[in-house]
Design a protein around this nucleic acid. Structure first.
Lengths: 341, 341
DNA sequence: CAGTCGAGTGACAACGTTGTCATTAGCAGG
DNA sequence: CCTGCTAATGACAACGTTGTCACTCGACTG
């Protein structure tokens, strides 16, 4: 292994001078610097992270803790977003997931302490409140896709309310007035927020919100919920005054609405416009016609989480700060069209 | 920060003795050990990773390098599998992705060296050959979901050939004889291997392989390919001698086959059995009827990769060793049924 | 009883880096 | 010429841990 001293010996300078060059200390003669850089390249010297970390008392590694990665496949974009942001200053990501186990979580905090990570992002795989307890962690903590009830930690979450508004507003702008809703499990925060968004949009154009047209697409306790969007869709679409558009709680629901429409001989978007949520490309781009939907900005959430960390919130905040809301963009494809006449 | 010396002082012993306790060295008096453990718990002492790493010259961290995480959402299960295996010996995962950029990849190798990772898993997001060049990395390297052309590194890959065999054999066992195929982009290795699997299964029951019934579901260069499974499906299903079952290259293709069948008034599984591949639960469990498919064992691949690392292959192997094949299990749901008569 | 052994423990150095402080040379101002 | 200054560099210690070696103290062997 090539060390600072090896480089120093080869370059005929002291270790400290090499250290200065490595750390971009301006107090080094230009010629000396060039000579040392040449030796570094020749020997392919890489500074030892362990030694730096020991001296510095902190490391260039950021911890990422997740609950369950499996549930929504695209939520890993939080990880990609975080990495994208870290790469710029050559920092890296130490990842651990807790699988929802409290003991494991405590171990992970300990491990993060052992590694002297400079900060921790706690990311959940669906948007929810999170009580972090007291992690006894010295560095900064940022929540991604979740938020602490009393606002103790900075949090970055998707703007579900505005996302719901976007769904409804787009269909209303296309002239739809009878709009069905097949929503997420109502226990989910996202479901509640989006509902509020619908209502705002409906109210803005003076369309009454008809509870008859609002059905849950999932039933049962979360984690073991069952999707019933197909039945809900058939039900809505069999009504004499069937809706001309359906807002879905996610793209899976939309997928079943497509099937329900097909089973009743209805074509999308001629007879029915469908609006999804999540922008799971696997579904949205594969459906025929491709699905117009609202995206979950996971990548951006991950990126912002790291930036918030770097901005340096030292430890838990005493005051209450509301979560940062990241907008959910409309992704237009072919499943919505303007209503005739 | 609580150090070994703090614990030692509190317990009235030397630092070395505490070190022994922390490292499960048996040469410590039982009472001394208990006393020290009590102090450790009381002070919540966590051994400093940096210092250990510096002494040891290696760390308990394993590097995971990926090309592009985004493409297939479930391939992140490789990460989960790896973590599952690492957790047992309290090791952790340092993750970096290269986004396919060679410069970035070189940086990542350097970073891994700086961190003295004990080994590296290189995971690709679809099954493909990978030429690693000469990473100048001292530790063990294992490939996951990819393999080096000359077998220089141990590799763990899905057994696509047997997966293809499984798809065909299951339908043949149900009595199907006219079986259509809508396959992956033929440039993919998986596509070739599975094709060989089909042929074996067909040959075993003496059914001729009809190239007329074999259509690509994707066209165009990879990364910008276009899915045409819907058209391929309608085409196959409009034939006078239409197949009674269709084998799909993945679950997205299956999804379009469902749509194609619906557009022609055919019901699944009464009129047509459909067999997927990948077991993307988002699709397979949401389709009506739920999709019978073959799973990609990403979790297991990740787990085995770590185990292979731990088994300790020191550096690159000179000899050629074939990749380890992990079976792709049949996941039965409701989209295939026995043929009448 | 002297010598040997093993169990238990501690002193000390070393890992690679960087902060602190000291040192040198060169130069401007008095 | 001396003082005070800056730019450039180096000597040294310290970060927290653990391997090496040495030590003590009973117990056992011959």
């Amino acid at each position: 292994m090539v060390t600072l001293r090896d480089v120093a010996r080869q370059a005929g300078v002291s270790a400290k001078t090499v250290s200065r060059v490595v750390n971009d200390d301006p107090a080094v003669n230009a010629e000396t610097r060039d000579a040392i850089l040449a030796v570094i390249r020749r020997l392919d010297y890489v500074p030892d992270h362990a030694a730096r970390m020991m001296r510095a008392g902190t490391s260039s590694v950021v911890g990422l803790m997740t609950d369950v990665v499996a549930t929504t496949p695209y939520s890993v974009d939080i990880v990609r977003g975080a990495q994208d942001s870290l790469r710029r200053d050559r920092r890296t990501l130490l990842i651990a997931n807790t699988e929802g186990d409290a003991d494991l979580e405590r171990d992970v905090w300990r491990m993060f302490r052992a590694h002297k990570v400079s900060g921790v992002v706690y990311a959940t795989m669906y948007h929810r409140p999170l009580d972090l307890g007291d992690p006894e962690f010295g560095g900064a903590i940022v929540l991604a896709n979740c938020f602490s009830p009393r606002g103790r930690f900075p949090a970055i979450v998707p703007d579900d309310e505005h996302g719901g508004y976007t769904q409804a507003a787009h269909l209303l702008a296309l002239g739809h007035r009878r709009i069905g809703i097949v929503s997420l499990n109502p226990v989910l925060r996202a479901s509640v927020l989006r509902g509020a968004g619908f209502r705002t949009a409906f109210a803005e154009v003076g369309v009454p919100f008809d509870p008859e047209l609002d059905r849950p697409g999932f039933v049962g306790p979360i984690e073991s919920e069952r999707i019933v969007a197909y039945e809900a869709g058939r039900d809505l679409l069999s009504r004499p005054d069937r809706p001309t558009a359906i807002i879905c709680g996610n793209d899976k629901i939309a997928m079943q609405i497509y099937a329900a429409a097909a089973s009743l001989g209805l074509s999308i978007p001629q007879d029915l416009s469908v609006m999804g949520y999540d922008d799971m490309t696997v579904i949205a781009e594969t459906l025929r016609p491709a699905l117009t939907t609202v995206g979950l900005p996971y990548f951006e959430i991950g990126r912002r989480a790291i930036e918030t960390l770097s901005a340096g919130t030292p430890g838990a905040k005493a005051g209450i700060e509301p979560p940062v809301l990241v907008p959910c963009p409309l992704v237009e494809r072919q499943s919505c069209r303007a209503i005739d006449g």
